[in-house]
């Protein structure tokens, strides 16, 4: 299939970017979106031009590195998939595809489609861990955990921190990401110990970094490649309310 691509090109964080139109020909419908981008880049290199910079790593849909905003959707039109798992059969011959970087103040563009997502690392450093300084590996079954809670924690822990929730949100809010991280710990006894402090610190960091507020639009849930539920946001709101007002010392 032959396609027209409108790709955001930006030399570095300081310069202004712009959309550049490229034509790619003879793309197989079995190719992945990133393979199509590879073909475009080979073409550009052959022509002596600068290839399009984009983030990618595992290309198996598990790492969360790829991050393209394709035709108005983070990770493209497929539900519950990352960009690397999007295939060209989702498009038609002759289509024009617009590819943009994630847009959010805390995610500045580094080059072309690559954004700096270390704001998420800062949030994790503010509380996304369990403080255990020393000791051996505890026995797996020493602490009983209800199956339902283990499942919910596992669902929340499925978040790969790709930032699609921020990209999709009209307010560039990071609530889905932060709530998934808060939830995965708050639901388990090991994480419960620091749950009250954690939620306050992570939310404070999230706000400080300049992410927007949650309007409960739920675009994040629709865009999430791991289909993290907005029930996690409600859980974080509950945790926060409890930590601040109802039972701060609990």
């Amino acid at each position: 299939m032959d396609l027209t691509l409108k790709v955001w090109r930006q030399a570095n964080a300081k310069e202004n970017g712009r959309f550049v139109e490229y034509k790619v020909k003879g793309i197989s419908s079995d190719a992945s979106f990133l393979e199509m981008m590879d073909i475009l880049n080979e073409q550009l290199v052959t022509e002596g031009q600068d290839p399009v910079a984009f983030d990618h790593d595992c290309r198996e849909g598990i790492c969360g590195a790829c991050s393209m905003y394709i035709n108005g959707r983070p990770h493209g039109p497929d539900k519950g998939t990352t960009t690397c798992q999007l295939h060209m059969r989702r498009f038609k011959d002759g289509d024009t595809i617009t590819v943009e970087p994630w847009r959010a103040k805390p995610f500045p563009v580094i080059k072309d489609l690559v954004v700096d997502r270390s704001a998420f690392d800062d949030i994790i450093q503010a509380g996304g861990f369990v403080s255990v300084s020393t000791g051996g590996v505890p026995d797996a079954n020493a602490i009983p955990i209800p199956k339902r809670k283990a499942d919910l924690a596992m669902d929340a822990a499925a978040c790969i921190g790709c930032g699609a929730c921020v990209a999709a949100c009209k307010n560039a809010s990071a609530m889905l990401f932060v709530s998934a991280k808060v939830s995965q710990f708050a639901l388990l006894p090991q994480g419960r110990v620091e749950a009250r402090e954690r939620v306050q610190n992570m939310v404070a960091k999230m706000d400080e970094l300049g992410f927007g507020n949650c309007t409960n639009t739920y675009a994040c849930e629709a865009a999430c490649p791991k289909e993290i539920s907005v029930a996690n946001i409600a859980r974080m709101n509950r945790e926060y309310l409890a930590a601040r007002v109802i039972a701060p010392n609990d």
Binding site: N71, G72, R73, T98, A168, K170, T217, A219, A222, A223
Partner: peptide, 8 residues
Amino acid sequence: KVKGYSEQ
């Protein structure tokens, strides 16, 4: 450039 439309 392309506005999002995944809101619920």
